[in-house]
Amino acid sequence: MRFSPSVSIAAAVLYSLMTAFLTQVHPLDGLFALFVLISAHGRWRVVFLRMLKLNIFIVFICLTVLLFHGDRGHALLIFFRANLITAVNVALFTGYTADEFYYGFHALRLPDRFTVTLFFMVKYTEILGKEYDRMKEALKVRNFMPKTNIFTYKTYAYLAGMLLVRSMDRAVRLSQAMRLRGFSGRLYPFNYISFGRSDIAVIGMLIIQSLFTFGGIV
């Protein structure tokens, strides 16, 4: 089951706010997380692998709390809070492209200056990413072997510098082209991602979760 990006973003923000401030975690606080994990059917492998990777930092923090301060309760609280929120974020967001997130923010009617910056940032990341891949290939062709020395650091500095030089020219051309076509700080996207039944289900689950968390049902 897929949700629209705007609903996914709003749901993830609300669930994060609900869970991050908990001082005790009850099994029912994970109800919404369980729902979105089940709805991520077909992407479970990706979700699982990403959760493993993200748990490196979480486990590191928990271990330092446990080993150096012997505070088992605090370590477990951090572990469960972090994993519940991360699981929801991973299950809701894997599979979306950067463009879809832009449409999501636009649909949430956030200020134009933010959504326009985000739009340009997404477009420039594509340009920079392609340039970076090309330069990396060029370095490989020239048999560049990164080592811990000044030559390597200088090469990386020049690589980042060339990325900026090449991309800035394109960025300026893109913004000039948009200004020529009447751009005045607002974008009008056509590709809205429609609101469906699955979105109603996720909103319903979030309301149920908030009743469990705040309504004293737990």
Partner: peptide, 24 residues
């Protein structure tokens, strides 16, 4: 605003892409 919009977005994406540049 104006020219700073393109520059801010570009530096934002460089900050983003920078996290993929691994230095030994």
């Amino acid at each position: 605003k104006g020219d700073m919009l393109a520059k801010t977005a570009l530096m934002s994406s460089l900050f983003f892409v920078g996290s993929f540049i691994h230095v030994p």
